[in-house]
Design a protein around this nucleic acid. Structure first.
Length: 164
DNA sequence: TAACATTCCGCGC
DNA sequence: GCGCGGAATGTTA
């Protein structure tokens, strides 16, 4: 497992990689930027640099309000099958559009699981790249966000989505 | 079993 | 119409 920091205009994001790809992404910590760390055996270090480059450019694209051309491989195996279904549904929302938690629940074939959909969004290990910010409450209100509502508002605004 | 980043319905204003 | 309170609901640790 390797974690390193990606510098963007909005701060330094912490990206976590394992053998399969990107497995986690954290918003910039407010105080420090810290050092990049590698833990455990560092054998497959070669692809990580390429993944990090893809992650960085994709982040910058999204923060600028544009759809990333290419995404790094992401390892979602940490999630339950239900969570992975939710994350896949989120990834299929086109940029600039939103879905309510209830609509996402319908998309994955469990119309009554809207409550659990919200929970799965909160458990999303890779915010921004998996666009959990495009999930809103049914009445068009913003709902919640694990990284802080400021981030959610900012990401939505970057895509040209207006809130009530 | 208890917690949720929800939703819906009924009330009072 | 708007806001509040409460119940139903699926998944997870």
């Amino acid at each position: 497992m390797i974690s390193l920091f990606l510098k963007t205009d909005s701060g330094s994001f912490c990206a976590i990689y394992n053998a399969h790809g990107l497995s986690g992404l954290r918003f910039p910590a407010r105080g420090g930027q810290g050092k990049s760390q590698s833990e455990g055996a560092v054998l497959p270090q070669k692809p990580v640099q390429a993944w990090a480059q893809l992650t960085l450019t994709a982040l910058n694209e999204i923060l600028a309000g544009r759809a990333p051309l290419k995404l790094p491989p992401m390892d979602l195996s940490a999630g339950t099958p239900f969570q992975q279904a939710v994350w896949r549904a989120l990834a299929e929302i086109p940029p600039g559009q939103t879905k309510s938690y209830g609509e996402i629940a319908q998309t994955i074939g469990r119309p009554k699981a809207f409550r659990a959909v919200g929970q799965a969004c909160g458990a999303n290990p890779i915010p921004i790249l998996i666009p959990c910010h495009r999930a809103l409450a049914a009445n068009g209100k913003i709902g919640g966000f694990s990284g802080g509502l400021d981030w959610k508002r900012r990401l939505l605004e970057a895509e040209g989505i207006k809130l009530q």
